[in-house]
Nucleic acid binder design. Structure first.
Lengths: 240, 240
DNA sequence: CCTTTTATAGTCGTCACGACTATAAAAGGG
DNA sequence: CCCTTTTATAGTCGTGACGACTATAAAAGG
């Protein structure tokens, strides 16, 4: 990369692909678009698009996020670069290098096509495969990344509405990790971490329609990291 | 990203940039090349180059790693994608999207220019800045990533020769983190983690020229993750 | 032979966490 | 209206990991 001979390099198309995740009814969902053309016509794919000449990949990703979800304000949503997928044959038509992002949404309004793209829809994470291109891999990487970051960051609140109960927060962990957690222990850990959540002053229950004792409401606190981490229960092959 | 109109996108140059880290004499070093031309002529920069038409970014990164270090076999070296830097103005000449990688080397032979690129040299990490382009940021991100991965992976052995002492392994942690660690406690933790290190059978000391009691030799074990993690000593603003 | 240096072994108290039990506050059914 | 069910919250107990520290072993140097 010393001098740039004008023909020393091959120009590539650069795109962004988005793994937009949310929780609907206690199940992990992902925002997908149906492909209308070959290749992979009729298949579901991650939303995405080209990076425009004056955009960074981050800017393009947030623009696509707004277009595909139809939300007016996506500035507060968690958006995070995953990695870049650049296998030469990942798109049979041409050389496309794609910067993948993961986005986390609290609630999940069914998207209304605000852009010119095909209509996007929420699909349960477990029903998503097989996706077009290498999007299965991207989606799996996004899931793994989010699951890992729940351990040592306060990212779980990104799945929650502005006010939430500890039970809802615990459901985030349980849904993403696919494991059950002990409720008193989860509660103790979250409350013992300064800045993770803050109680809402007049915080009675929100949905009084629930059956049991109404839960207190909390807001996300200023903390971003979790020390010591909240480790997911080990399955196999770990150390002591 | 539904249909690809041939002129619906702007072609970008795609490059890789490498943060090649090693330990020399108890100090973290980084492999740098001196720029001969504008912009940033005379400045140090991370080695890198264009992704060729039939390469993935990973393939290009390993090729560049071999070229810049002059090593014959780089297949066993740890090479890991960091993230992609795509700000529109990051290179004043043209639109360049760069996929950054971090590479970890055990020993540090002074590189002999095997390729056509400018001579690469090892510089102490702390003396490296300011670098050309946005390479300060890339280097900082690489350092942060490696430091974080030392906590929950067995990555530290990637800095060590095939056989090493526990003191050398501890020096990896101390150098990358910039903190001191208690030797008996470090030893206990490493040995209590199955598969992190394995004793060399006839493992007397390697350098009998040392002063104290010769240390036993170990090899890297099959484990890749560290559960529970080996957390770096917290400085400030953490939780309980 | 004694000191210095480095490696290795062991101790002790604290804290975090998993497992578990107990109590409180709501809804629903007889 | 009482009693069961359901969910939230409070507390207990034992184990294990880890930080801080002390002790012993094996080398080199004077």
């Amino acid at each position: 990369m010393q001098g740039y001979d004008k023909y020393a390099y091959e120009p590539f198309a650069v795109t962004v692909d988005l793994a937009v995740l949310t929780l609907r009814g206690g199940a992990l969902h992902v925002l997908l678009v149906e492909r209308g053309q070959e290749p992979y016509a009729g298949r579901w794919a991650l939303p995405g698009g080209f990076v425009l000449p004056d955009e960074s990949a981050e800017t393009a990703a947030r623009r696509e996020l707004a277009e595909e979800t139809g939300l007016e304000d996506v500035s507060g949503l968690h958006l995070e670069q995953l990695r870049t997928y650049s296998e030469p044959d990942r798109d049979p038509r041409m050389r496309v290098v794609s910067v993948a992002f993961a986005a986390l949404l609290p609630d999940a309004p069914e998207p209304h096509g605000g852009g010119d793209a095909a209509q996007a829809r929420w699909l349960p994470y477990d029903d998503a495969r097989p996706l077009a291109f290498d999007h299965d891999r991207i989606l799996a990487d996004a899931h793994e990344r989010v699951g890992a970051k729940l351990e040592y960051t306060c990212l779980a609140t990104a799945f929650c509405p502005p006010e939430f109960t500890l039970g809802e927060l615990q459901q985030v962990y349980e849904t993403v990790w696919g494991t059950g957690l002990d409720r008193p222990n989860f509660r103790r850990k979250v409350l013992a971490t300064p800045g993770f959540v803050e109680p809402v002053p007049g915080g009675a229950a929100r949905l009084t329609g629930g059956r049991g004792k109404p839960a207190a409401l909390y807001r996300a606190g200023p903390a971003t990291t979790l020390h010591p981490p909240l480790l997911r229960p080990p399955r196999e092959g770990r150390s002591a």
